[in-house]
């Protein structure tokens, strides 16, 4: 009964969510009295042995350049074959864009039950029960997996990484890789900004900012906090901000450590996208805004006065 984690990489670098999965996988392996191993597809520049710091004993790499781009069918073939060769009985992904593209395919191939969006370690005292978020974060479900092989995809930011000491043994795995059917024509990454789904801190704006020309104060605060920026649905629909910044039930769902909402009333559909945030700060001039009920800290006041002060105070605190 060994645990295999899938390490997601981009341009040769291991993604942050994969370290969370490594930590989670190592803890689960300890719970089951087995070891955690990792699978890496494609060529990579990061030092894979460092995954040992997160509790991974062995790293298996299929270092084929074809796998530097995601093709769900190729990835499914290779991962399923690796699971068979390595005799893994639990396979763990992160519930990120890549995880969503391949985890359920792999599960179907292996006839394995899957729980996506897991938020805690499985309870293995009686069977194998995984807790996951449901109803867009408004509740949790405890789901039992009955198949011999189990697949989990872990919600990003729901499990903290724990780096200690350790060096993983890295070896290459010989698995034939076919030809991709999906051709990647272009990749357009927003350079220099923190990706929203990976961000520790997110600063978000709503209609209370009154217009796109007022976004400067929000951007200043975000810059000071090294935060990603987001917005509410009406803001995206009015084209004040790009659609990829829209967080909420029908937009991006996030779970940062800190979510700062400026001039957002907090409709239930918005909360569904952000309620997994660890700490929520709401700044709104309307004391009746429903968001205050879901917040940890709040200021009832004019954001045009409060936000620049907040940026200044953070600078002061940091001794800048």
């Amino acid at each position: 009964m060994s645990v295999l984690i899938f390490v997601d990489q981009s341009e040769g670098h291991i993604k942050k969510a994969s370290y969370e999965v490594a930590t989670y996988g190592a803890k689960l392996a300890a719970q089951l009295g087995t070891t955690a191993e990792a699978l890496v597809l494609g060529t990579i520049t990061d030092n894979l042995a460092d995954l040992g710091k997160y509790g991974i004993k062995k790293v298996h790499q299929v270092a084929n350049e074809t796998l530097n781009h995601l093709d769900a069918q190729l990835f499914t073939n290779v991962i399923a074959e690796a699971v068979k060769q390595l005799g893994a009985t639990v396979v763990i992904f992160s519930h990120t864009q890549t995880g969503k593209a391949i985890s359920s395919n792999v599960a179907a191939r292996l006839q394995a039950g899957i729980v996506t969006g897991a938020s805690a370690l499985p309870d293995t005292t009686n069977g194998f029960v995984v807790k996951k978020t449901v109803f867009s974060g408004k509740a949790f479900a405890n789901i039992a997996i009955h198949s011999p092989i189990k697949v989990i995809s872990l919600n990003p930011n729901s499990f903290h990484t724990l780096a200690g000491e350790g060096v993983a043994e890295v070896s290459s795995l010989a698995i034939a890789v076919g030809n991709p059917k999906v051709k990647v024509n272009s990749i357009d990454k927003i350079i220099g900004e923190v990706p929203l789904t990976e961000a520790d801190i997110v600063v978000s704006g709503g209609r209370g900012l009154k217009g796109p020309e007022n976004w400067g104060i929000l951007l200043d605060l975000a810059k000071e906090l090294h935060a990603a920026t987001a917005c509410s649905r009406p803001v995206a629909d009015a084209n004040w901000r790009p659609h990829h910044e829209h967080v909420g039930q029908t937009g991006v769902q996030i779970a940062p450590n800190l979510y700062i909402a400026l001039g957002i009333s907090g409709a239930i559909q918005h909360l569904a996208g952000v309620n997994r945030s660890k700490v929520i700060v709401v700044i709104n001039k309307d004391p009746e805004a429903p968001f205050f009920k879901a917040a940890d800290y709040g200021i009832v006041g004019d954001l045009f006065e409060v936000v620049p002060k907040l940026t200044e105070e953070i600078k002061k605190m940091r001794g800048e």
Binding site: V129, V134, N142
Partner: peptide, 26 residues
């Protein structure tokens, strides 16, 4: 089916918002 739902739970209620005066952003 390969999985089954055993139970649901609601998230723990928030302790309640701590309000800070707009004159005391520090």
């Amino acid at each position: 089916a390969l999985t089954s739902i055993l139970s649901f739970e609601l998230p723990p209620a928030k302790a309640g918002v701590k309000l800070v005066s707009p004159d005391n952003v520090a």
